[in-house]
Design a protein around this nucleic acid. Structure first.
Lengths: 378, 378
DNA sequence: TATCTTTTGTCAATGACTAAAGTAAGTATC
DNA sequence: GATACTTACTTTAGTCATTGACAAAAGATA
């Protein structure tokens, strides 16, 4: 991100974002409290909140009981002023949600994909967004899209997506033309992370988020910002090498052997079943040994990555199809055992479900995040 | 880092830093060029450079040949306006350097340590700084310190240092009292990285820096900023688990087994010699197999970490005592072979020498960096 | 010499902030 | 019930960094 010169406009942007963020996290809140929290003068807060109320981003709701003087007039984020949309794109459907300024989902719509051809995918995504938005479309400030694969958000390119069979597709531009709204694209796991960051429970400043499903993904949050790395390729722990011991090596679709993806993903487990000559679906009960082995490798891999970055919190989001008996619990156990050896305290480890709505909502939250942080999106 | 409200002072800081950084990277440069580069108006550039010249941070040097109009009056960083000091602290000595605004070393001084007791270490460091600074001491804007171990720069605490036998020492405060200057502390590898970032050759925005010596260290640079992680514990790849195959497990001083530090560090190699009953120094020729094995593990570990973060550039800084035959070259070979499997292009891999002066200079550059970046030090 | 080009400096206007004073709307006290 | 006190918000006047417009400087060009 190229540095930007300071100007009065920048001051305003910073302070508006600051005020909005205080209201977001402490809603409902008085102007006096905003003054204290932001360090701005009371006069500035009056001016800034006035402008934000005019544009519908803030609303005055109740009047607080007096604490000995004039009672405070409490402010909250406006639920009707602006909206953001998010789409989660898979090979078969586009799942759209619309959220209000608070990140609450107010509408959803799902649209089938005729093909994974980029233009058709963008058209289907646009139809889904339009249907979900309905009469709110003029108040949409942008559309976020969660795409499977390696996504370079800065350039708007999908570098590589196995599920869609894409390579270097300018999907941001395609979707902007189809929806006629500003678009932000991101990978599944980064979109999911955005959603987590928007909620207070997971709003840690140093977090590591894993997505576990057909493939594996990881997102890195440092100082409250998602790190994307060179060309958006950060978090690619799926193709780090797992520690395998005496078991036979497993070839990975990437060309290497024994990547974590061959051990811990649904793809890897299914592949192992095939190798054993069993052409059937994974069975949580019958394949418990296979699942336990996957969980072990996943947990160890996650712990190794966690030790590199030292996050305060680790979240493992399991896709609905990856909820297999005690897979998640076993992964957590393996993580805790492996991390235990280090002399730094282990991070909090949470497991969660990463379903299509969570991904689409996360993508929408990427759009909202622009309002609450002044510096370029993080 | 808590968000800070926008104000005229902040704008000034941002723009002064912006101007200084343009001059730093493109010196010598005209005001007109600064106008283009920063996006500021010519009027602002006149005002800002005027103030910076007054305080000695900039100097007007030559006059450029005319390109058809009034010739430009070129600006450079002042060599005499301000200075920064850096100290590299080991168990036996404090090595201080003083650098000018351009990061060039103008003086060095080394002072022995009577003991590793924190107050004595701070006193020795202060003596070294004072001796190196001499008459420039009033123009010192701060002192940077590079300490072995896990350092939490934000709180100024050395969390853990094996070499010094420290745990949770408020060394920043001690050194501020001893030197009567503002102090920034950092780990060896982060300080070294600072120095690299100050030079154009290594000023990549996505880099991974490793230090290889008695112990191992890693620094993560994302978007041009050093990432410290939770409690400053980022980059701790030394105690990730190495992939070992059929060899016997090696216990690590941290309590775990087969950490990279047991394989790739001088400590690990020396320890392995002892295990074999050979109580002698490592021999580059006689122990070439041991060294080759260490290089292999190092290279693989570095490549795995690189794949997680996707840097554009990887630098391995070898301490002078870790220059052992072709150790560095073999490490690079192992890195390239391991990375080759991934479907992302491999980063540029450089090896370099990380000697005491490089570390001390890097620490000094941490201090200078505050002048060239407006946001809190990164 | 006159004109053009490029760089640098000056000045009034803009606007975002702050301090200080004022207004609003309650509670506490006699 | 009148007065004083508290707390919350608003208004006013003043400060200051940036900007656009213009002026001045200094050499090239014809």
């Amino acid at each position: 991100m190229k540095p930007r010169a300071g100007s009065k406009a920048l001051i305003r942007e910073i302070n508006e974002a600051l005020v909005l963020d205080v209201v977001r996290t402490q809603s409902p809140v008085s102007r006096a409290a905003i003054t204290v929290q932001t360090g701005l003068s009371a006069a500035s807060v009056t001016g800034i909140t006035g402008k934000l109320i005019n544009s519908g981003l803030l609303v005055e709701t109740e009047i607080a009981p007096s604490t000995g003087g004039r009672p405070a007039r409490l402010l909250e984020l406006g639920r009707e002023g602006v909206f953001a949309a998010g789409v989660r794109l898979s090979a078969t459907e586009a799942h759209a949600v619309v959220v209000d300024l608070r990140g609450d989902v107010v509408a959803t719509h799902s649209e089938p994909l005729a093909s994974t051809e980029p233009a058709e995918a963008a058209a289907a995504a646009a139809r889904a967004v339009r249907a979900a938005a309905g009469g709110r479309e003029p108040r949409l400030i942008g559309v976020g899209a969660a795409v499977s694969g390696v996504v370079d958000q800065a350039s708007g390119l999908v570098r590589h997506s196995g599920a869609m069979s894409w390579a270097d597709i300018a999907f941001q531009e395609l979707l902007e033309e189809a929806t006629e709204h500003p678009v932000v694209i991101d990978s599944y796991v980064n979109a999911y992370t955005r959603g987590l960051l928007f909620d207070d429970v997971f709003a840690g400043r140093e977090m590591l988020i894993f997505s576990v499903g057909t493939s594996l993904g990881a997102a890195v949050v440092v100082e409250g910002r998602i790190q994307r790395g060179f060309n958006g390729s950060a978090g690619g722990f799926a193709h780090s090498r797992a520690i395998t011991g005496p078991e036979p090596a497993r070839p990975c679709h990437c060309g290497a052997e024994d990547c974590f993806e061959t051990r811990g993903s649904l793809w890897g487990m299914q592949r192992e079943l095939e190798r054993r000559g069993q052409d059937r679906q994974l069975d949580p009960d019958g394949d418990s040994a296979l699942i336990a082995n996957a969980a072990l490798h996943l947990g160890i891999g996650m712990a190794n990555m966690a030790k590199v970055l030292g996050p305060g919190q680790v979240v493992a989001g399991f896709a609905p199809e990856a909820v297999l008996g005690t897979f998640a619990e076993q992964t957590k156990d393996a993580f805790v055992r492996q991390y235990d050896h280090a002399n730094t305290p282990p991070p909090i480890f949470d497991t969660a479900i990463a379903d299509p709505v969570a991904l689409a909502r996360g993508a929408a939250c990427s759009v909202l995040a622009g309002l609450f942080t002044a510096s370029p999106t993080g």
